[in-house]
């Protein structure tokens, strides 16, 4: 018995040691980038017809786009390429909103936008981990991508490192928006869709986008794990989409004290009090994998697939903020 206990304690010690080392190293990429320690990083060139950049007007297109959507994926993402289900979601959304530019080509967990699988000391390891992930087998190695990105969410939520991380991410989003036809000062609304940890990143970049582009910024959280970030003060409205089987999205309310009701003056509680927060129950949807918000093979009682339901809710919210787009009945949204 004592042998087993000793084994468990040793294992816990190794895990704790590993977690501490990983945590200590996690801010280095952002801080080193800002300090210029790694030299000038050229932006990775993206193909003009990147599959996750949708509805971009052609050069001779006279029609002004009515809305811009930036999708910030969850912590499973390893490169600028999306997993098949997320790509499917973006394409369905783009079809639903033909006058809205949909940008889903960013890797939100590196201020350099460099994918994990290229130009990094551990890129071979990440390629191997990604292959395992794509094979569909749940392995610890495959999950290491999630852990690595989760630590970047911690960097984003840190009051010391957050501003630098968010500035780096805002820089990428800004570049993406301007390259794809956004006109600074035009007032065209921007909606950031943050899936899981992407929700936290969305909060952080909002003040920069709002101030530099003079644009209203809304956030749609898709099972987002979000802190009471100061960026909430600049969010026009936060739509919080949560499935009843999504346990992960509840973690934010537990681990970030600013979301506890005992701190009424926190940014989060002020947002709720000012009526800029809407919670939207999504039905029996889970966080990721099978039965997630972007699952095309799981269905609600009314027969619609989870992915279509999510597309409908998201597009309705976007239409609400772009009345020119579509004149249609909007979903009932519960304000809390």
């Amino acid at each position: 018995m004592s042998e087993i206990l000793g084994y468990i304690l040793s294992l816990a010690g190794i895990v704790l040691f590993g977690a501490t080392i990983a945590l200590l190293l996690s801010p280095l990429e952002t801080l080193g980038w800002w300090a210029g320690w790694f030299g000038e990083h050229p932006q990775p060139e993206k193909p003009l017809d990147h599959p996750a950049v949708l509805n971009v007007p052609a050069a001779n297109d006279e029609i002004e786009r009515q809305h811009f959507v930036v999708f910030l994926d969850g912590i499973a993402k390893a490169t600028g390429q999306n997993y098949a289900d997320v790509q499917d979601f973006l394409e369905r959304l783009a079809r639903q909103l033909p006058d809205t530019v949909v940008l889903g080509d960013l890797f939100p967990y590196a201020v350099t936008n460099h994918p994990l699988t290229e130009h990094r000391p551990l890129s071979r390891f990440w390629r191997f981990a990604l292959d395992l992930k794509l094979s569909g087998r749940p392995t610890l190695l495959g999950f290491s991508i999630n852990i690595r990105n989760l630590l970047q969410v911690a960097v984003s939520a840190d009051r010391r490192y957050g501003p630098i991380y968010h500035q780096g991410e805002a820089r990428l989003i800004l570049r993406d928006l301007l390259m794809n036809g956004y006109k600074s000062g035009s007032g065209v609304p921007i909606t950031l869709i943050g899936y899981s940890g992407g929700g936290q990143i969305a909060l952080g970049v909002t003040p920069y986008l709002k101030r530099i582009l003079h644009a209203p910024v809304d956030i749609i959280s898709l099972g987002g794990v979000m802190s009471s970030d100061r960026g909430l003060r600049d969010v026009r409205h936060l739509y919080y989409l949560a499935g009843s089987k999504d346990v992960v999205q509840r973690l934010g309310a537990v681990f970030f004290p600013g979301r506890w009701p005992i701190l009424p003056h926190s940014s989060w509680n002020q947002l709720v009090r000012q009526g800029r927060f809407s919670s939207i129950p999504m039905g029996p949807i889970g966080h990721n994998g099978k039965g997630s918000y972007v699952d095309a093979q799981a269905f609600l009682a009314d027969g619609s697939s989870f992915i279509d339901h999510t597309v409908k809710v998201v597009s309705d919210i976007i239409c609400q903020h772009s009345p020119h787009l579509h004149d249609r009945e909007l979903l009932y949204i519960t304000d809390i």
Binding site: P163, I164, Q167, L174, M179, Y208, I212
Partner: peptide
């Protein structure tokens, strides 16, 4: 000071992108 520094740096990015268009 940090906020000012960050925003200034970001404005430069924005200006550069718009000029290069």
């Amino acid at each position: 000071e940090l906020e000012q520094l960050l925003e200034l740096s970001l404005s430069e990015v924005s200006n550069n992108e718009e000029t290069s268009e």
